[in-house]
Design a protein around this nucleic acid. Structure first.
Lengths: 209, 209, 209, 209
DNA sequence: AATGAATGAGGATTCATTCAT
DNA sequence: AATGAATGAATCCTCATTCAT
């Protein structure tokens, strides 16, 4: 299977192998995280899931928390990428309500497709990794804030407005997915859209206020 | 094997005593939870905090998770009571914006005064107690929904509207407290109020729609 | 086997039991120390030797090093007691050479009878317990110094003289026991005696110098 | 199974290279031993210090203990050489007390300049290397014994006398360096000299006895 | 009812050693 | 000869739970 290099590897495929191993471990960590939850994600289980020996983990990560931290980072990055794509696909919409509806729908869908991951990120606490989750949130924030600031007038409260909008969409979408109400999906989307549209209309056209 | 108690228990109001003990243990659990976080909340520490022996915990709770579950329940109940009072105090407000602003402010304040508790409830996961947090949320929901349904016309989507409103206020208030944005408190309150008022206006007076 | 106390132990025999357990653990630690050496003295082995479970060690000692520290202390104390008795038995001797010879012999004998223990104390390093061994030495020092200062005039160098004497006897005795030379025991004792007697004679009677 | 080396090894002076490598490893071992102490002297750290891979150690040493054993041997040899030079420089002295004083001083100085090494040899136990330290001692013994036997009459107890003298000087010097008493250096040297001179005088001139 | 000592499985981490390349 | 990744046993310690008293 391996290349039959006669010379002692001048092009260091070890770099490659190492990265593959890290990937494998992170995948295993992710798997264990979803399957057992944060506190049951022991080094033993992760090693087993990665098909390696427990000691080998420490060749690639200094300790368990760093490892799990990177797992969570990867989760977050994936989710962010997914969301990013969703937003981009809906920015070009026509009327304001349509654009908003599209984005809300896209966000909910993105979350629904990653419910397990969302649950880990939002319900399984990395004990002292408040930071990490905050980081994740802030990264989504940035993304959405950037997208929204285009629509807003540069008024003094632009930050506050962006914060309200971003937190509202995100929280509602997450609430809808992680803690589903007994409400039709379409109705939910429609109401969220109305909520945001009304607010946005006010903020986009200050005179109406 | 049976207990070798000589005296037939003097008619002590054991029912009473038992309840007092449960209270004491739950208080200890709460204390430990706040002081050490969920995973460091060991039975030993809780027993010590309650001034009893670890074995005695099992006289009152079948295992650690049930115990901590009830602790979390009590936290939630306390918080709910606190919020309930806040709402009640602000329902009688005059104009719609004033009433909304009052409630938003009350909610944020209530959360701020219980930030530690909130952090435990929202950032420290009871490992498989997804249920529990959902329960907590739902109970707050009920409360607020009840309060809000009074304002809403009995249209088909009343539930959806209530859900949106409740989730929005609560999530925004929690976000503001647990993950404070760089936004003035007054600005935040004002924007949240605007968001909700605009939406409520639409929903309260269907004709405008 | 156990006492059939009907009342919940007003005279706390637990105190007693606890002390017995500590003794048992320390004995086990000593045993393991002699049998396997310091670095192989693992908590597991000690627990096994004590016939208890590893976790139980921590009911009585905060960690392994404290436990082993106390084991070493006990060794040292035993040895010191042994030596103390030996000295006392020989202090009443008649002529100076006889008294010295008696003490040298007593010390060597005491060490010979505790060679294993001596080996642990002098050849098995408690990694950071330099302190501990120094303590042990100093305690023997005190003992011997006290004994010797009686013979010395209160000259300025009394300390130096006592130090030389004590270190010399002790080190020679230990060297003889731990690292036996190819020299007759009697000859060794005789030479050590001569060494010390000559020096003492000089120091006890300054005029001769 | 056999090594698949294509070229017949170019006639490299492998013998030479091998010896150089062994030296490098032993130096690394010494360095690690001084820096981290015996139990922290892991193969990994030694390999790192030698700038080679852990696996390569096993090309030159069958296992860790042999490696460290040789490290200790080298330490001892170096120390012995140092001491040897010190003795030689002081043997030509005039009067007996002067010669003795010179040697005592030289020994203490030599030990002081190698206190770290001394500490490893005397306080850090090679777990079962009782042997090794004894070896070291015996080699110093030989040296000093040889030097001293010149002064001694060939009586039956020459060995015992030499043993007493050597052990006494060495132990006192080591005690002084590793476990410094609260005694002036000069006083200490003077007393040690007196101790030895008195004894030597007796033994060198049997008639006085 | 209460105790609290005892348990023992489980967890994170280290490290001497091996082996495919 | 050299590498260094992989191993896996061993180590220390924690903690939920039980049980004799």
């Amino acid at each position: 299977m391996a290349a039959r290099t006669r010379r002692p590897m001048r092009r260091e495929p070890s770099q490659e192998r190492s990265r593959a191993m890290v990937r494998r471990i992170l995948d295993a960590g992710y798997e264990v995280l979803l399957a057992h939850g944060y506190d049951r994600a022991s080094t033993g289980r992760i090693a087993a899931a990665a098909g390696i020996s427990p000691g080998s983990l420490y060749q690639y990560f200094p300790d368990k928390h760093v490892l799990l931290g990177e797992v969570v980072d990867r989760c977050a990055d994936r989710l962010r990428a997914r969301i990013s794509r969703a937003f981009v696909a809906n920015l070009a919409g026509g009327s304001l309500p349509d654009a908003v509806r599209g984005n809300v729908l896209a966000l909910i869908t993105a979350f629904e497709e990653n419910a397990g991951l969302l649950r880990v990120l939002y319900e399984q606490l990395p004990p002292n990794a408040d930071t990490r989750r905050a980081d994740f949130k802030h990264r989504i924030d940035e993304l959405a804030t950037t997208a929204l600031l285009g629509y807003l007038p540069g008024g003094a409260r632009a930050d506050a407005v962006a914060w309200v909008l971003v937190r509202t969409v995100e929280n509602l979408a997450i609430s809808y997915v992680l803690d589903p109400p007994e409400v039709d999906r379409e109705d939910a989307v429609e109401e969220i859209t109305a909520l945001l549209t009304g607010y946005l209309a006010t903020r986009l056209d200050p005179e109406r206020r």
